[in-house]
Design a protein around this nucleic acid. Structure first.
Lengths: 149, 149
DNA sequence: CCTAATTCCTCTAGTCGCTATAGGTTCAAG
DNA sequence: CTTGAACCTATAGCGACTAGAGGAATTAGG
């Protein structure tokens, strides 16, 4: 039973259809059997794996990490030190990003609070960007991440 | 005076050499005059503009926003409402990302704290990834941003 | 003045994790 | 049996860079 179309798999997993095909193309997800007409037909294993990936992505893990974690989960008798190591690294990364963003947030708050809504020449927003010396904190660093879609 | 090489401009601005050329290629930075041999020679205006961009990038603004803010700062008599709007939008975005990352952090903490360092089969890290129902909070959403380089 | 090391040049392709589009085929409901 | 939705492949694009090849210019030292 099952035999899910890619659309139903997408709905059940929360992963978009083109993303599922993308995962297959980069080897994150096994290629499923096809219908006589050539369409993908998935089973429950695929759904489980996709949910694993989705959950991991939500937690900010990269696909490489998730591949490693998936490989580990396929060998249940091994020590989980490696999984623990990956998760701790991710935790540190997230905390580093939070710290960076907190500094940025403080600076942005200062900027907009001091904007007197006059003309550009006196605008704190522009002034602050032009002159880092106006900043209260050091907010430079690798915390800047692209906005999520 | 000045007449900075791209390398010195890079050192003074904190923006890497290839990035400066990239900015020129996408119109973020004016093309400077060239030496007789064809190398770029920058003046203080370029340095100022690059620092503006760098500071804005550190605060998480996209290049499009910075282009708009730069255009505004070139017209000092205009109202700064637009600059304020852009900064507030950025602030909200940063706060949304912090909130998402906080939820993720809580979940990762739960994962690694409960890891008993046994075998994979009993590993909380793997278990949690496999089953979202084990999560305390809802951490799904658009907070996931790529790691900064 | 000459050489050698460093910096600079252009161009192309790769990163990450998708997303979008074009142009065509198959499937499932009525 | 028809229709329209969902599917297929393939390619290109996003943001903001980064890396590498292969060569030319500059600069510091002798």
């Amino acid at each position: 039973m099952s035999d899910l179309s890619i659309g139903r798999l997408s709905a059940l997993s929360g992963v978009k259809v083109p993303t599922i095909r993308y995962y297959e193309s980069i080897g994150m997800l096994d290629a499923p059997p096809r219908s006589p007409g050539g369409q993908r037909r998935y089973g429950p294993d695929h759904l489980e794996r996709l949910r694993f990936i989705r959950h991991g992505r939500d937690l900010g893990f990269g696909l490489d990490d998730l591949r490693a974690l998936q490989d580990l989960s396929a060998r249940p008798d091994q020590s989980c030190d490696e999984a623990d190591r990956i998760a701790r690294r991710q935790l540190l990364d997230v905390e580093r990003r939070i710290a960076g963003l907190e500094a940025v947030r403080a600076e942005l708050l200062r900027m907009v609070e001091r904007c007197s809504h006059g003309v550009v020449d006196e605008c704190r927003v522009i002034q602050t960007l032009s002159d880092h010396a106006l900043c209260a904190h050091d907010h430079a660093g690798g915390h800047t991440a692209s906005k999520a879609g």
